[in-house]
């Protein structure tokens, strides 16, 4: 499903160059739940952005469902981001002047779903994160945890096969963080492939496969067979 081969991401050049990713190879199969851990600045987000087709590697190959992403046109990339991937950002990234429901509708809008169906699907996704009654509010009228749930609903709305979550619990207290994690686990049980970045070792401990990154390299990739 997701196949990174020898990915480099280098910022700057010569003396001052920063190797954000220094030869990453990673394979994620359909239905897996993978967590990526590592210290700050180790390259987790950079890696996630490349998987999410938001950023382009300096070198290396990335195959998504067998297709080389580097050969895709802008429109094909947009299509992939829209249909194949759901991104949950650490900073929520909601559009402030749109209502919660309109925010959740966005991926459906670009998918070409008709207005009434869009509303229905968006409300359903909001229901799933427990915010079915907040559709007409604006993001600024919600708490941080609620906003993060909106961004999860937005990632779910189009029912993408892969969800990429970049520290979704980073800004939340441990209780809400817990809820989010349980929710992602639930999604994974339903068949969604999930890649989760986290700082939190207690969260990583609950996830079957943990990939540890340091200085842009994968230093360990362990699967706990006892977890399902």
């Amino acid at each position: 499903m997701i196949e990174l081969k020898n990915i480099y991401k280098i910022y700057g050049d010569g003396e001052g160059e920063i190797r954000a990713l220094d030869g990453i190879s990673l394979h994620v199969s359909k239905g897996e739940f993978v967590s990526i851990v590592g210290s700050s600045g180790s390259g987790k987000s950079t890696c996630m952005n490349i998987i999410g087709c938001l950023d382009i590697p300096t070198s290396g190959e990335y195959y998504l469902n067998g297709t080389d992403v580097s050969t895709m046109t802008e429109n094909e990339l947009a299509h992939v981001r829209n249909r194949e991937l759901g991104f949950i950002f650490q900073q929520y990234n909601l559009i402030p002047k749109l209502t919660v429901r309109e925010n959740v509708e966005l991926p459906l809008l670009y998918k070409g779903v008709k207005a009434h169906e869009r509303t229905e699907l968006a409300l359903h996704a909001l229901d799933r994160v427990g915010l079915g009654d907040r559709g007409d509010k604006y993001p600024s009228q919600l708490s941080g945890g609620q906003q993060q749930r909106v961004s999860i609903a937005r990632a779910l709305a189009g029912e993408p096969p892969v969800i990429l979550a970049d520290e979704p619990t980073g800004a939340l207290d441990s209780k809400t963080g817990r809820e989010v994690l349980d929710f992602l686990k639930q999604l994974n049980r339903e068949g969604t492939t999930i890649v989760l970045i986290t700082h939190d070792n207690s969260i990583a401990a609950e996830i079957k496969r943990v990939v540890r990154i340091q200085d842009g390299r994968i230093v360990s990739d362990e699967v706990k067979e006892d977890l399902q």
Binding site: G52, L54, E74, N75, A78, H79, R81, N82, R83, F87, F89, N93, L94, I95, L106, P107, Y110, K111, R154, G158
Partner: peptide
């Protein structure tokens, strides 16, 4: 710019 980035990350094409 940020809004454009969000829209693009959700699948907006350049044409959109």
């Amino acid at each position: 710019t940020r809004e454009i980035g969000i829209r693009k990350s959700l699948g907006a094409t350049p044409w959109d």
